[in-house]
Structure formats: structure tokens, C-alpha cells
């Protein structure tokens, strides 16, 4: 564990808490994309399949449970909570998740660290699911970014949520650079490339977020 990775995990945790805070306290999910939240629930479900079979540390297990619990409860709130669901604007949240999930699944079958298709074993299945979750996480924010461009006035909590979500993966990139130089054989091209793509997708959001912070004006993304 290094400072970049810890900072990344804490930033990721904070992003989830900001969103839960918004939904739980003001009982509103205005401006939040349910599609992105559902994609994140799938990301965590497919990445943490090994939560019961492989034990790494109390921290690792606890964080996995927090991310699984929070992502599924956010989806539950937005779908079924009688007050929160009213503030969900489904007409603005039109991105079709399957056009993201299918290519990620096909890509995970073709490009993963195992590469060997012949051994259809549980470990191969775990590798494919884990790789799928990496690719899916890289693009899971797209429905949310599309929705932000359509929602004219982005409220502060939503802006902070997206900012923290992008920042966490940027910190992970620093963590991968650090581990590459300090550990033997630490090479994970698949993780690095999908993490880089993920962070680059936030590039324009970061730019407008920084501008709004610097000029102290409301955050607005160009249509």
C-alpha cells in the first residue's frame, strides 16, 4: 500500500459518500445518471467476485463491502425509494448501458491477462470478469457526463461527486507509476491503459470544473 493508492481509495470512498449524502439527506438524485450507477454496481459485482474466496487484508475486504453496499443501495434508492425516485430525470438519462457492456465483455474475452481460451476454468472466468469490470469502469461515467451536458445547472454535490470519481483514478495512475518503479514484475498493461482512458474521459470535465472554481462561477458544461 502506498500513499497514492490510499489517497485514491479514500477519494473514491469520499465520492460515494458525497453521493449517498446527497441522496439520503436531501432525498434527491437530480442530475445523477441511474445508468452510470447501475454500471458501477455491475463493475463492483464483477470485480469483487473473489471477495469470499481470496482474502487479502481487512482493509481490502472492508472497502469491497463498502463499495458493493453503497453502489447497490444507490441504485435501490434511485429505482425504488418513493421520494428519491421522483427526482430522477429519466428523459435526460438516455444512454443505453448495453452499448457499453457488450463491447467490454467481448474485449475482455479477447484481451485479458490469461489469453488462453482453452482452459475454461474458474480462474479464467474470474480473470475475464475482472478484466470486464476494468473496461466497464473506464466507460461507466459516460452516461453521467452526457447527462451533465444536458442538465443546465449542475448542483455542487453532483459536481463534487464526479470530480472525486475522476480524481480517484488519476491517483491510481500515480500509484501504478510508483509500484512500477518500486516493485519487481509490476506490469499490468490492461489495468494501466483502461485506467488512463478512464481518467482522460474526465479531462474536459476537469477543465470546466477548474474554470468554475477559479472564476467562482456555477459549473456548466458546453452542450
Amino acid at each position: 500500500m502506498n500513499i497514492f493508492r490510499l489517497a485514491g481509495d479514500m477519494t473514491h470512498l469520499l465520492s460515494v459518500l458525497v453521493l449517498l449524502l446527497k441522496i439520503h439527506t436531501i432525498k434527491s438524485c437530480a442530475g445523477i445518471s441511474l445508468k452510470t450507477q447501475e454500471l458501477y454496481a455491475v463493475v463492483f459485482a464483477t470485480r469483487y467476485l473473489d471477495i469470499f474466496t481470496s482474502y487479502i487484508s481487512p482493509y481490502n475486504t472492508m472497502m469491497k463491502l463498502i463499495f458493493l453496499g453503497s453502489s447497490f443501495s444507490i441504485v435501490w434508492y434511485m429505482r425504488y425509494h418513493k421520494i428519491v425516485r421522483r427526482s430522477y430525470d429519466k428523459d435526460q438519462d438516455t444512454f443505453r448501458p448495453y452499448i457499453l457492456m457488450l463491447p467490454c465483455l467481448i474485449l475482455a474475452l479477447l484481451i485479458n491477462e490469461k489469453f488462453t481460451f482453452k482452459e475454461i476454468s474458474t480462474s479464467f472466468f474470474l480473470f475475464v470478469m475482472w478484466t470486464f469490470s476494468l473496461y466497464l469502469e473506464a466507460v461507466a461515467i459516460l452516461p453521467q457526463l452526457v447527462m451533465l451536458q444536458r442538465t443546465r445547472n449542475i448542483d455542487n454535490l453532483t459536481g463534487q461527486y464526479v470530480f472525486l470519481l475522476g480524481a480517484y483514478r488519476a491517483l491510481y495512475i500515480l500509484n501504478w507509476i510508483y509500484r512500477y518503479f518500486t516493485e519487481e514484475h509490476f506490469v499490468h498493461w490492461i489495468t494501466w491503459i483502461s485506467g488512463l482512458v478512464q481518467t482522460l474521459l474526465y479531462a474536459d470535465f476537469f477543465y470546466y470544473y477548474f474554470q468554475s472554481w477559479k472564476n467562482n462561477v456555477k459549473l456548466q458544461l458546453p452542450a
Binding site: R5, H12, I56, N60, M63, F127, N175
Partner: peptide
């Protein structure tokens, strides 16, 4: 290299 080595990160 088994599954654990590669997946110690969240």
C-alpha cells in the same frame, strides 16, 4: 502468477 498477485488492488 495466480489470481491473487494480480488483484491486490480495489
Amino acid at each position: 502468477r495466480d489470481y491473487i498477485d494480480d488483484h491486490d488492488e480495489l
